[in-house]
């Protein structure tokens, strides 16, 4: 991204009404262009101070280029780190070209500089991860993490190209159940450890605090809770940008310098999208017991069914969320609820 484009992006995001903005730097590898990260960070800080808004930052990085001086900058500008750790060495190395030893060393360095609670890791599950969920969790515990996000694989980019790497929803749900049970068992062993997806859903179910999670918004969180800036374009979500990279720019909301924030938000196609993703009125969602806690996934449904609403009987999103809701509500009726509510 050019500096001039970045300035336009900062201007665009500050035109919105949000009082608290979270800026996530993605790539590629953002640390390879850290001067741009610094430029955007400082531009945002200046703008936020002038307008009385709050701004938070996250860098998504494989950490291979992380140094103490980058760490010192992140510390003083309150930039959190999000990295990838797919599991024990053999699994992580199979996914990410033998980088396990490097990433765990860099995680410790990042913790020292940025703060242990400001360094998080995400794991990407593939078919190689099947049957390994306990190993993956053990790796996170052994590396001193206090939580893990057991998330499904996004079927984009390399992930779809590498056929045979994907995991079915049923496989994922089994994996999730096994992982959640195992994490609860660890908690009974004095190891405080959370599963983040469950924590988000429980916060949604049991409290009035907004989950702030894009997948759990009605209407669509894509476009309202998140915008993705790539090149000179603004997309509804990360998935929209990946879809565009695969040749379909249907979810491009605006072009920087061409439309203002207000124009983009009022564009008929976007308003239409919001109207059709209010789960309160979406067929099959409207009669679902879990609707108040769930959300819309227009981009996912479009990819799957070429329709932003989608038929829920064929929806992976629906199946996945239903499966997890049933598990959680069952568990809330057991003694495990004490541990689960402690995650909120």
């Amino acid at each position: 991204m050019e500096y001039e484009v970045a300035d336009e992006a900062v201007d665009f995001m500050f035109q919105g009404p949000s009082q608290t903005l979270k800026v996530e730097f993605q790539g590629g590898e953002p640390l390879l262009n850290f001067s741009l990260v610094q430029h955007i960070t400082e531009a945002c800080e200046e703008r936020a101070a002038a307008e009385g808004k709050r701004v938070e930052f996250v860098v998504c990085t494989n950490l291979s280029e992380f140094t103490p001086s980058i760490g010192a900058y992140c510390r003083s500008h309150n930039i959190a780190i999000s990295t990838s750790l797919d599991g024990p060495p053999d699994l992580h190395n199979a996914h990410r070209c033998n980088s396990h030893a490097l990433v765990v060393a860099k995680i410790d360095l990042a913790r020292e500089w940025v703060g242990a609670d400001r360094v998080s890791a995400l794991m990407t599950p593939t078919s190689l991860s099947l049957g390994r969920v306990r190993d993956i969790i053990d790796e996170y515990v052994a590396r001193g993490f206090s939580s893990i996000f057991l998330r499904p694989l996004n079927p984009y980019g390399y992930a779809t190209l590498a056929q045979g790497l994907s995991m079915s929803v049923d496989e994922w749900l089994d994996c999730y159940r096994e992982g959640l049970d195992y994490i609860l068992w660890l908690n009974r062993r004095g190891i405080r450890f959370r599963e983040e997806f469950a924590a988000i859903l429980l916060r949604r179910i049991l409290t009035n605090v907004p989950a702030g999670f894009v997948d759990l918004q009605s209407p669509s969180g894509a476009g309202t809770a998140v915008l993705v800036y790539f090149g000179d374009s603004v997309y509804l979500s990360d998935e929209s940008r990946m879809l565009a990279a695969m040749g379909d720019d249907r979810f491009r909301l605006a072009v920087l310098g061409r439309e203002t924030f207000a124009e983009a938000m009022r564009s008929p196609t976007f308003v239409e999208l919001l109207l059709s993703t209010m789960t309160e009125g979406v067929p099959m969602c409207h009669e679902c017991a879990f609707q108040p806690y769930c959300g819309a996934d227009p981009v996912g449904h479009y990819r799957e069914q070429k329709d932003v609403v989608g038929h829920k009987a064929f929806s992976e999103f629906c199946k996945r969320h239903m499966g997890v809701f049933v598990q959680l509500f069952e568990l809330l009726e057991t003694p495990a609820s004490k541990i689960l509510t402690g995650w909120i």
């Binding site: 306990r134 660890l186 190891i191």
Partner: peptide, 14 residues
Amino acid sequence: VTPYPDLPQRVRRR
């Protein structure tokens, strides 16, 4: 210190 003899192998050295 832990009283539990059955912690996961990979975390026991802590």
